[in-house]
Design a protein around this nucleic acid. Sequence first.
DNA 1: GGGTCGAGTCTACGGCGTAGGGTTTAAATC
DNA 2: GATTTAAACCCTACGCCGTAGACTCGACCC
Lengths: 211, 211
Amino acid sequence: MTTASARRPGRPRPGTLTREAILAAALALVDEQGIEALSMRKLAARLQVDPMSIYHHVPNKAALVSGLVQAVFAEMAPLPDGSGPWQERVRGWARAYRDLALAHPHLVLQIVTDAAAASEAAIQISEPLYAALAAAGLPPHPVIHAAGTLVDFVHGYALGASAAAAAAPMSDHLAAMDPALVPTMHRVHAEAEPGGGFEAGLDIIIRGITR
Amino acid sequence: MTTASARRPGRPRPGTLTREAILAAALALVDEQGIEALSMRKLAARLQVDPMSIYHHVPNKAALVSGLVQAVFAEMAPLPDGSGPWQERVRGWARAYRDLALAHPHLVLQIVTDAAAASEAAIQISEPLYAALAAAGLPPHPVIHAAGTLVDFVHGYALGASAAAAAAPMSDHLAAMDPALVPTMHRVHAEAEPGGGFEAGLDIIIRGITR
DNA sequence: GGGTCGAGTCTACGGCGTAGGGTTTAAATC
DNA sequence: GATTTAAACCCTACGCCGTAGACTCGACCC
């Protein structure tokens, strides 16, 4: 709301601190040190400002994090839209959404949670997906179900990818386990080392949509 | 490790406090008041114990939460296993896993995160899924991809379901938005009010696996 | 009885989010 | 130019938090 250059009665210093600067600093801090390192005090230190000053631009910490997520959503690359077969449009959308989520690995949880709660920014993001599915000639109900499935898949994938980046890969855990407990997994993973899980998932879901 | 009735050197009071009691109290606290209400002090109060006493059974708070998640994983209903067509086994597994995740709504995030990080408990849970897919005659690579897709979908779904339970449903947000921004979604949701997203997603993915 | 050990307790530290109340400032009005 | 005004900013302080470190005390072993 508070634009940087208002024309109202009193103004102390000419906007040395703005909501945008705060969000940018917070995003940088999170990208560098993770979400748990984000505190009002550290953020203020980075901005060379008293911690309480931040509260004149953001009502509380939760709103700040939410603002961070909204900012990330706003970065979603505008899709080429409308061209090509619907399968390719859906694929392109899914990749763009995944890239968006993984662009800030320390923020994936917040992004996915916010999207799962269906914030307005998150809803806007999925419009092209709905458009592509509707253009494929699907009736309303199947469109909703197909879109929901895809979104849920991307959320789950992004969560897994960011978790895998921060911890040991599943193969390690699996190798350390008693093969008798997980015989099929042991055998299957011994015979094939995967990768490409995202594209394979897209293939499966798009095939399943087509019937 | 520390069983309730050990026969070891020194014991002040006869096991008034055990790891199990701590986990049970913590789980109750979380189920009642949410994960953010879980603090060592509140937990201690509930157990009528000094906060620091807890640290004799759990190294720190992160381990406590992790223990909570492991305990929930241990509750996974043992599947009927091995009987029926593979589609039904996969369906049954997915439903059981979803129910597990949603059994403690305030813990869904940590459950899904833990599973995404492929903890041993989480790996064990997915063995029946792998078994069903392998029994379907799928080669190793497709088994891994199909399982990954399904797990990611369930994770995304569970996250969405728990978020939707705590916030306004998407329809409300959508109705409050400018229809020009999200024309397809607006139209599609006007023509069909869904539900059954989980089963529809399963249908899509299982169809997609089958080719 | 003396020694050991471990569960339970107490105290205290450094960090957190943020309420409440000044203080400073520059634009707006006179 | 003087006065008014209200936003931006800063300071202090409160009540939480996780947990390190030292102490108490009762049970067991020798």
